[in-house]
Design a binder for these strands. Structure first.
Lengths: 231, 231
DNA sequence: CGTCATATTGATGGGCATCAATATATGTGG
DNA sequence: CCACATATATTGATGCCCATCAATATGACG
């Protein structure tokens, strides 16, 4: 990617949009693009922090693995999103893993140290970073709430309703953008439970399912499930 | 509180420690102290954001209430901590409630708008804010992990082991700093479950209990419970 | 077409919430 | 200071949700 293209790419990220040209150019100077295949680790938990990342194409899953080998997905970052800012800027080592979930996944890596030094040159960097971190914080608060207050069914229903719908006519089609086991991990449930929920909803005429494509027949019903008002 | 005392208080908060004198003085100019009794609401979810807060004395519980009346405690902020920065600086309305849990609880309220305008005058403000928000983010990630990966018993055991111990001799005494129902809410469990867990541990000789004061007899055992290696 | 990952379906059980009843603590006004 | 009212805590009974273990089934891909 040439330099001009890199600047355009950076300016397209919410984190950097709104920054003046020369600041973006300065950021570009400490940035390089990296390409990963599906399944490739971008960040390994415990490694020294070197950079944070913006997603140009593809998507990344951020997850923590605990001592007993279990994984907890914290976040899925698609095109246009940034991730690992907080860690890169304030911690010695990454506290989580990041893995590419599509091929190819193109990232821009912004080196931590040079970026930190830019803080002084343009206050807008601090401001935009604060906004980004705050948004992440709120998203996590939402996750905490979901985990502790909502049933597995409600979480799945929400996830389905949040998917971009390809409404054909008056019908409502959506497609799960990842393997079902990954969706399950994302929701903090097991693949078995996910399978059973979808089966039940099919039997009750709430939706039809074909692989990862599904048609929502009764969106109202699904919405009430999402509010935890009956499975 | 006179102006000099206010500045000293602010400088004692991690968010502002490390800032030059004149910056602290500028912050002090948009700050006022407020005192609350136990149970008084500091922030009401949905209200317009006016300020963020530092805790001078006492403590505050931050929680969300959902449509069905259930509460989820996100955070307990004791003396020296700040809270609501993210909301105050980036949102129109508070996304959570905050209630004083001690009498008296003394807070410093830093008005959002003037503070935001100070961003340009000193880059250190942005940097320190980024650090604070990052720390909060990591704490929340930890909470997510606990909620999804640890049993109620493990969470309670951790909470007990995290309490400041008043070790008398070679014995280990701790005191629960809030009502048990609040501790339960903090851990995302019901008071009944909390009560049963403590009862079981008493029966097994792990600890003894008298009101909110308890003596940990077998810290090793409790630590293994905290790691989810058996109830 | 065979191999491996992913998905489905069933059986089983445990953890923890819920509902309900009582006991204890806390605080208040007379 | 006591009696009462109210909040908090304990204990029991019950049941649901969802994880776990296990056994196919289906799909992806070289």
């Amino acid at each position: 990617m040439d330099d001009a293209a890199l600047r355009r790419t950076l300016a397209g990220l919410p984190l950097f949009s709104g920054l003046p040209q020369r600041t973006v150019a300065a950021v570009a100077a400490c940035t390089r693009t990296e390409t990963y295949d599906r399944g490739a680790l971008v960040i390994r938990q415990g490694e020294p922090c070197r950079a944070f990342f913006g997603v140009v194409a593809g998507a990344v899953r951020i997850y923590r693995s605990s001592a007993d080998g279990r994984e907890r997905t914290l976040h899925r970052a698609g095109a246009g999103r940034t991730f690992a800012e907080a860690a890169a800027l304030t911690l010695p080592r990454y506290p989580a893993n990041a893995v590419a979930v599509e091929s190819p996944t193109v990232l821009v890596a912004v080196a931590s140290d040079p970026f930190l030094r830019m803080f002084d040159s343009d206050p807008a960097i601090g401001r935009t970073l604060v906004a980004t971190l705050s948004a992440r914080l709120l998203q996590l608060v939402g996750l905490v709430e979901e985990l502790s207050a909502l049933s597995a069914g409600a979480r799945l229903a929400r996830a389905l309703l949040d998917l971009p719908s390809k409404g054909g006519g008056d019908r409502l089609f959506v497609e799960i953008p990842e393997a079902k086991k990954d969706l399950a991990a994302h929701l903090g449930i097991t693949p078995e439970t996910l399978s059973r929920l979808l089966r039940r909803w099919q039997d009750r005429g709430v939706l039809t399912l074909d692989g990862r494509k599904l048609e929502i027949l009764d969106a109202g019903r699904l919405a009430s499930i999402a509010d935890d008002a009956g499975s």
